[in-house]
Write a protein that binds this DNA or RNA. Structure first.
Length: 288
DNA sequence: ACAGGCTCCTGCAGGC
DNA sequence: TGCCTGCAGGAGCCTG
């Protein structure tokens, strides 16, 4: 299931391949879901627009779109030409099983393809999502404000702000980590892995954690996310990047989906419980 | 306001 | 071998 590192990997890959390309034609499946904006409206808004950039916010992939003829800023260049102002955004949430792929038009259509954007370069940007938990949204920035995740970014949040998120919260820290209104981008895998790094049991009440524990959690979370991004994300279920390539972080999971396996640190068998309706994995000895 | 539970959806694993 | 059941989970919605 795509979380922050997987979404980051996909957004980077898609950005590399489609930045500056023009959306010639947009096609959407006739399923009721997964559209936050009506498909006809999305198609109308997308066709003829230039993709200025693609980036990640929380678990969302945001495509910044400009008017035909707008020149995107070159990636990673120092020379700062005037940044073209986006006119619109196409926002993709992958849900559990969503994929955003850049393909050639002759590439066979995967089952459950819900959107195909034909690009002027001849390539196609495709959204595939068997379980339809993903969401597609179009925002006209002339009418609406730009997309912003409601929660804080775990990669940049400072200690004081992080601690304040959990103050007075009477719920399990695991459940709090999954709440996108507090932190944007953390899902089940990295919640479990960061709690292991911090040595904190998932059922501990969020508001009762000490300053020291919260700081271990903040740094553990950041480390585990950064490490996973370097490895291209975790491939559990059917996650693949923009090229359809799997990531490697799943080989380094310490607790996630390792129930009954020995802890990598102390060899105690990893336990699995259910917290907030989610499978939750922890080491009963290393996590207190 | 906040917390917890239910719902959506399909693929896959496990049991008989 | 093949069918059936149950489970996985992000986030929006409803309820207490």
């Amino acid at each position: 299931m795509p979380e922050l590192p997987e979404v980051e990997t996909i957004a980077r890959g898609v950005d590399q391949r489609v930045r500056g390309d023009v959306i010639a034609q947009a096609w959407f499946s006739s399923h009721r879901e997964p559209f936050k904006t009506r498909p006809e409206q999305q198609a109308r808004g997308l066709e003829g627009r230039v993709i200025l950039s693609v980036h990640r916010t929380g678990k969302h992939i945001v495509c910044e779109l400009g008017a035909l003829g707008a020149k995107p800023a070159a990636r990673g260049k120092q020379e700062k030409g005037p940044e073209p102002t986006p006119e619109a955004q196409w926002i993709v949430h992958l849900g559990m099983t969503g994929r955003l792929l850049v393909t050639t038009p002759d590439g066979s259509m995967a089952p459950h393809t819900h959107a195909r954007l034909s690009l002027a370069s001849g390539r196609e940007l495709r959204f595939v999502d068997p379980r339809r938990f993903g969401r597609l949204e179009f925002r006209d920035l002339g009418r609406k404000s730009g997309f912003a995740a409601s929660g804080a970014e775990p990669l940049v949040i400072e200690a004081a702000e992080f601690a304040a998120l959990f103050r007075g919260r009477r719920l399990a820290i695991k459940a709090a980590l999954l709440n996108q209104n507090l932190l944007a981008g953390v899902g089940n895998i990295y919640a479990d892995e960061s709690l292991f790094r911090a040595g904190i049991r998932p059922l501990r009440m969020a508001g009762r954690l000490t300053r020291l524990e919260l700081e271990r959690l903040r740094t553990g979370l950041r480390e585990v996310l950064e490490h996973a991004i370097r490895l291209g994300g975790s491939s559990v279920s059917d996650y693949v990047d923009a090229d359809g390539v799997k990531g490697f972080f799943q080989l380094e999971h310490c607790v996630y989906q390792r129930a009954e396996h020995p802890c990598r640190r102390c060899e105690t068998p990893i336990r699995r419980i259910v917290v907030a309706g989610r499978g939750t994995h922890f080491c009963p000895k290393c996590q207190r």
